[in-house]
């Protein structure tokens, strides 16, 4: 099983932080509403870019808050957990780019592509590889070597479910099977 050389292992890709990451006030919640809007947009973009680069599908805030994303150690500035939650909330309500996994707001699904977009990506891949009317297990779809070079490789199962549901609604797929033995047929 070989991975195409064009796609180096994403986890090792160094992430280049945007310039605002080196701007100390970026880590303090801005009190001016207009400024805060701008700040949220920048955080949202940073979080999504970071998660895309690191292939993070679900972001555990409690853990991430101590990581480089929210804590610029060289500046000695960090975003508080409460502020991070608020930003995820904004990403969820205003942009539809995140969703809380549970009510305690500790873990969020981050949609650097949302389920609609993933559905299209998967649908296109099926089309391109002429796999209509074939049956794939969900495991094959996200972990199989066939998809190793695809963006959705390694996708979080919950996001996969949501994306397949979109395809089902579009009449392009049918999901069957039970819990851990699920398969999907594409039309």
């Amino acid at each position: 099983m070989t991975t195409p050389s064009s796609r180096p292992s994403p986890a090792e890709q160094p992430f280049t932080f945007p310039r605002e990451y080196h701007f100390p006030p970026f880590f303090t919640r801005q009190r001016n509403a207009i400024t805060y809007t701008a700040q949220c947009q920048k955080w949202s973009k940073l979080i999504l870019d970071y998660c895309r680069a690191k292939r993070i599908w679900r972001l555990s805030l409690v853990d991430a808050i101590d990581g480089e994303l929210f804590w610029n150690k060289s500046l000695n500035r960090r975003l508080s957990l409460a502020d991070a939650r608020e930003i995820i909330d904004v990403m969820k309500t205003k942009e539809g780019r995140a969703e809380w996994v549970s009510k305690d707001k500790n873990v969020a699904l981050v949609y650097w592509r949302n389920p609609e977009e993933w559905a299209t990506v998967i649908g296109d891949w099926i089309e391109e590889t002429a796999q209509r009317n074939t049956v794939l297990t969900l495991y094959e779809l996200t972990e199989g070597y066939l998809t190793a070079s695809q963006e959705f490789h390694g996708m979080d199962t919950e996001i996969l479910q949501k994306s397949l549901n979109v395809l089902v609604k579009r009449g392009k797929a049918q999901v069957f099977g039970s819990e851990d033995q699920q398969g999907v047929k594409f039309f």
Binding site: R19, F23, P24, P25, L75
Partner: peptide, 23 residues
């Protein structure tokens, strides 16, 4: 200006520094 409340004394920064590389 943007406010930074994590310094010893509250600091006020110009957003222009976001683009000048800051830090």
């Amino acid at each position: 200006v943007w406010v930074d409340m994590q310094a010893e004394e509250t600091e006020y920064w110009s957003p222009m520094f976001i683009h000048d590389g800051g830090g």
